Simulated assay, not measured.
Amino acid sequence: MNKYLVFLASVSMLVIPHVGSGVASAADSGKGARFPAEWKKLPALDPDYEVVQLTTDDALDNKMYLDVDPYVPSLDSVVFMSERDKGHENLYLMSLDNGKFVQLTDSDHIDGDHANVSPETEQAFFVDDHTFTSVSLQAPYREKQIYTVPDKYDVKGIVALSADGKTIASSLYDEDEDRSSLVLIDVKTGELTTVKKLDGEVDHVVINPVNGDTLLYHMPDVEQIGLVDIESGKNTMLTGPEDHGVHPFWESNGRDAAFAQRKTDDTPEQVVTYNIRKKEFLSYDILDYSNHFAMNDSRTIIEGDGQKDDAPYIYYYYIKPNKNKVDAVKMFKHNSTSKTESVHPHAAFINDTDVIFNSDAGHEGKGDVYLLREK
């Protein structure tokens, strides 16, 4: 049964407080502005599923970067980014009960593509003009400035969060030194701790979702994937110079790090997992190419996004029980051009069966947010 149906009865009076019921509020934009549903239902290729196009505005709308799950069960709602406010990236909260949504932030300098969501604390986190900031998902949507990054650093990747929403993990890149600092920031106090400094650019770092004791990261210049133990600072490379590792993510059990490994010689595209306790690798051959991947909580489905000119599909790669083999099923033809990172599908599971993703189906670089869900 869909997770948001389970919560529906108990939270129907709580979803997006004070959202109006027909038209946008008197102010067309700004913090607290409310909007009616824009939903449009589309058929999926699997008859047991359907697709809901959550946004239809002419401006760019998107679900944030690859491994950000924007779903908040207690509110039965998702957070998304939109440029509908005069072309500025701001965050919005949409009810999956009725599609109505509210504007959470009002800024000219938010990096909305790389924001993140803490279901545990009911907050969204983002970088606003070099300052890590949080906003409550409950009215009146109060914001808190957490830590301002010195100008010499570029903040890379998403605002990664611990499971309890109390710690931010990030990569701060010093271009002049060509060096990255992997850091933790205490959300309550704003205290920053440097875990590890690495030569070169780290463009993406994610923290272990269960134990919060390990950082998984990607180095784009050499296409390498690594792990850093937070307590000891020990660095372990999961790929070698001959590999091509990209798009790291954690499995829900917290024991397995995962990433995509591109096709080399006779080795096909793969999703590779690494058990950080047993120090063992497992790989799944992906014969139907995808650019990005995600995995559901029960670790029975790997999602892929196609990303070839002749195969712009959302795929479900069903993992065969007790085997490192998958069955590929086309779920929806998303038709995204992936013209920019903002319109990459960047799908994420919001429960064990359903994924939220982006598509630029109109081929104009102005994406929308979609939900593939079980009927």
Rank of each mutant, 00 (worst) to 15 (best):
P312N: 02
E251A: 14
F332E: 12
R373K: 08
L216S: 06
K40R: 12
G30T: 03
D111V: 12
M81D: 07
S336Q: 09
K320G: 07
D46R: 02
R142F: 09
D113H: 13
S82L: 02
T148E: 08
D48Q: 15
L372D: 06
T214L: 14
D164H: 12
L93M: 09
K3S: 09
S25H: 01
S283I: 05
S134G: 00
G87M: 05
F7P: 00
D108V: 05
A139H: 15
S25A: 00
L60Q: 13
D178S: 11
E374D: 11
E223V: 03
T267D: 14
P119D: 07
S180K: 06
F126S: 04
L60R: 11
E89W: 04
N351E: 07
P345G: 06
A160F: 10
L182Q: 09
F125P: 01
A139G: 09
V272N: 10
E38Q: 12
L182W: 01
W39F: 08
M331S: 02
I314G: 14
K375V: 05
E341I: 10
N335Y: 13
T148L: 13
N2S: 12
M295D: 04
S338V: 02
E143M: 10
D61R: 11
M219A: 10
T239D: 06
L198T: 12
P241R: 10
I314T: 05
M81A: 14
E223P: 00
V355P: 07
L198I: 14
P70Q: 04
A169H: 04
S283E: 13
I207R: 15
V102T: 15
T214R: 15
H130E: 05
E177Y: 04
K339P: 04
F35I: 00
D61W: 07
S180L: 09
E269K: 00
D310N: 09
V117T: 03
F249C: 02
K188T: 06
P209I: 07
V187A: 08
F35N: 02
L161I: 05
H88P: 00
Y317L: 00
V202H: 07
G254H: 08
D61S: 15
P47K: 03
Y316R: 04
V183W: 03
K197T: 14
V155H: 03
Q307G: 05
A26S: 07
L91P: 03
K197V: 07
Y289E: 13
V102L: 14
A139L: 04
V355I: 13
Y313D: 10
Y141V: 05
Y315N: 10
H130I: 01
I158S: 14
D28G: 07
F332V: 01
G245C: 05
E280N: 03
L161T: 02
K333C: 10
G32F: 07
D128S: 01
F35A: 08
Y153K: 09
L137P: 01
D174E: 09
S338N: 14
D76E: 10
S134I: 02
